[in-house]
Design a protein around this nucleic acid. Structure first.
Length: 261
DNA sequence: ATGGTTGCACGGCAA
């Protein structure tokens, strides 16, 4: 099973690119974030045409929105609302016995201080809530995949400059600690770093606000695929698809994919 | 220190 995640930043604007990504990566399951569309306007036909017969979408106008497209049937499709908000950030489905969690963590605004910045406080509270919920399911033996835009670059090699990024939202020590707690909740394994060692710089996102994303290369690894430990023997490979950052019009995030036997 | 860009049921907000 090839399972991918991509923050599309508007699914309707990226339909042609979805076809190119489908062709290049051949995912069996494609999880999307920031679809930015209400469910009645979701472009189901485009996914059907690409061979994704099973699609679950949970969206809203303008902001957020998650979706899971699959070649194989989806069962037990559900969502979770965190911090008392119905903001379409978590979609869950079972595919071939695997519980798949498509997650879009709040970005957290500009100031990495929960006292000064309500959005950052929300991000931390969101991570706490998800962590507690997963920890409560520890030991149930369900194989799980947690993937999406976590809006955190946890490792030094996940940012262009560890020192300069410590005071920037996505790489602040408090967020990195929260990501660590979430990872501990079910002993999640970072499937991408399982194959590409921490010594190697990786990015899945490059800001729009740079004249030349490629030459400046100040990217961050914000998008992740984690698996529960019982899936470790089934990990076959992982890849990031930076090529799509150069397409027009580009999402600021690129796809990440893991293959499981 | 500041401003840089994109997307959205079109215009201020979120990223």
């Amino acid at each position: 099973m090839r399972i991918a995640t991509w923050n599309v930043n508007s699914v309707r604007l990226r339909l042609e690119q979805l076809g190119r990504i489908d062709e290049a990566l051949r995912p069996d399951v494609l999880c999307l974030q920031e679809t930015k569309v209400s469910d009645n306007l979701f472009p189901h036909d485009a996914f059907t045409a690409l061979g994704y017969a099973h699609v679950a979408a949970l969206g809203q106008k303008s902001y957020n929105g998650v979706a899971i497209a699959s070649r194989r049937p989806l069962t037990d499709v559900t969502t979770r609302n965190w911090c008392g908000r119905e903001d379409c950030r978590h979609l869950i489905a079972t595919i071939d016995g695997l519980e798949v969690h498509c997650l879009y963590v709040p970005a957290g605004g500009d100031i990495p201080d929960p006292e000064a910045n309500e959005k950052f406080a929300h991000k931390l509270a969101f991570l706490d809530a998800v962590t507690t919920w997963f920890a409560d399911q520890s030991g149930d033996g369900v194989p799980r995949v947690l993937l999406g835009d976590f809006n955190i670059a946890p490792l030094e090699s996940d940012v262009w400059s560890h020192r300069q990024m410590l005071k920037v939202v996505s790489h602040s020590p408090v967020e990195i600690a929260k990501a660590g707690e979430l990872q501990t909740s079910l002993a999640w394994l970072d499937a991408v770093r399982h194959f590409i060692p921490p010594s190697q710089r990786l990015s899945t996102w490059w800001s729009y606000r740079s004249a030349d994303w490629k030459s400046s290369d100040r990217g961050r690894r914000l998008d992740h695929i984690w698996v529960t430990p019982e899936l470790a023997p089934r990990l076959v490979g992982a890849e990031i698809f930076p090529e799509s950052r150069g397409w027009q019009p580009a999402s600021d995030h690129v796809p990440v994919l893991v293959e499981l036997s």
